[in-house]
Design a protein around this nucleic acid. Sequence first.
DNA 1: GTGATTGCAAATCTTTTGCACTAAA
DNA 2: TTTAGTGCAAAAGATTTGCAATCAC
Lengths: 150, 150
Amino acid sequence: MSQIFDRPTARPTQPGLRPFAGVLQKLAAAGLRPTRQRLALARLLFAGTDRHVTAEALHDEAEVSGVRVSLATVYNTLHQFTASGLLREVVVDSGRTYFDTNTSDHHHFFFEADGRLADIPGDSIALARLPEAPAGTRIARVDVIIRVAG
Amino acid sequence: MSQIFDRPTARPTQPGLRPFAGVLQKLAAAGLRPTRQRLALARLLFAGTDRHVTAEALHDEAEVSGVRVSLATVYNTLHQFTASGLLREVVVDSGRTYFDTNTSDHHHFFFEADGRLADIPGDSIALARLPEAPAGTRIARVDVIIRVAG
DNA sequence: GTGATTGCAAATCTTTTGCACTAAA
DNA sequence: TTTAGTGCAAAAGATTTGCAATCAC
């Protein structure tokens, strides 16, 4: 049954489960075998607009859409995707890890009320002045989190 | 560093356990009883320059300096101090909570190599443009983390 | 077949909680 | 006293890991 989902040419069957040629390409580019689990998760992650998910949330989503994946595999997959640049990790909450499908340079709103994340439009924020990296280091990344409350 | 005063009513027991006038004031201002544990932890936290600590690290430090405090109490104390504005929480690492003795408005370097935090001098960074808070929310705080490697 | 991937359960790690005991006011 | 604060051990989450079974190539 996973066949229909595995093929880029398969036609749409259920909403949200349409196979994407892009998903296969992404996995191939990352050097990851297109397993049933990875395809299903990639499809959920990259099907629409940019998303911010936790492992738990993605696991639930997979379950709801009828995909059988263990939580351990969801964790593994999210980290593999992150390592190969398909995802980006966002740290806003100690104790929970968020993964962002938008890997471009951008920043976030964090809604303290419900623990939701949203991208900040790239041109609505700007850093006027950056300090130099401390001696012997280089800037790996700059994260701006705007915490908003109800 | 001239803040080391003997408190008249304190009973000198072990070295490094002399109370600071400032520490007593801080606790009083926060409405927290000056217990042996809170005094000891406050002394470690506020004795010198600004610090960034985790509960575990502070607990170890207390142990080394001969103060007997349970880890649970360290957690409780750090949260009480945070709630009363004596400390600030910094989120840079999912899975670990850092507390900052500098409660003024400032940002951080995070050294990925060793998980260390450092304050960024206030005037060496500036946000040129901030987005508006999404409808129905207000900006509670803006955090900038510059992650440095190597 | 062979090596990569998965699932499950157990293990880890950090943090919180329940509750009897201790200490400040 | 009276009530806040503490310690301990157990509980709770989130995440990782070990290993046998399964799957992709």
